[in-house]
């Protein structure tokens, strides 16, 4: 029972955080509400017995990545005057909601079609480091390996787009 309540609390918090990210004008407030979303997502993972993902979510996303984002925002020192004037952003918002609402109602219908089931605690060890590692390196070796290519591309790309250039002489 308490698990169900926790689920509702975390879901509402994560949606609120996400909408705050979109609605706040100042990037710092946006980043702060993103942290709320990240932490409540970690709570949802914990409810699903995904221990490793829960820890990674807290350490990597809510911890490392968010502090990097905050660091960059502080580094840029954005004041309210620097922000662009967004006229009619609420009209865009309303338009977006109207555009998205059919998809949302479709998704709600899909979710409603699911048969209800009781939440149970899955077997011991599920979602732990060892179990995730075994699955990752036995069944999911190829995706794991090609992610390294993806990281390499983003690394080189960051250097190219932001770094100093040695141009064709």
């Amino acid at each position: 029972m308490s698990a169900e309540w926790l689920f509702y609390v975390f879901s509402v918090l994560s949606v609120l955080g996400a909408s705050g990210l979109v609605l706040f004008r100042h990037p710092m407030s946006g980043a702060m509400s993103l942290i709320v979303t990240m932490i409540s997502l970690a709570g949802l993972y914990a409810l699903l017995s995904a221990k490793l993902i829960f820890v990674l979510q807290l350490i990597v996303y809510a911890g490392a990545i968010m502090s990097l984002i905050l660091f960059i925002i502080m580094f840029l020192n954005i004041q309210t005057i620097d922000l662009p004037e967004e006229k009619g952003r609420f009209y865009y918002l309303v338009g977006g909601i109207i555009l998205i609402s059919p998809i949302a109602s479709f998704l709600i219908k899909v979710v409603k079609s699911l048969p209800g089931s009781e939440a149970t605690i899955v077997g011991s060890g599920f979602g732990g480091v060892k179990e995730v590692g075994l699955v990752l390196f036995q069944d999911w070796l190829l995706p794991f390996e090609i992610v390294s290519l993806l990281l390499l591309v983003s690394l080189v790309g960051a250097v190219v787009l932001a770094g100093k250039r040695r141009l064709n002489k």
């Binding site: 591309v153 080189v156 790309g157 250097v159 190219v160 250039r165 040695r166 141009l167 064709n168």
Partner: peptide, 11 residues
Amino acid sequence: NLFCTLEFYCI
């Protein structure tokens, strides 16, 4: 157009 570096071909 002189904005190319070696990484272009790599990417």
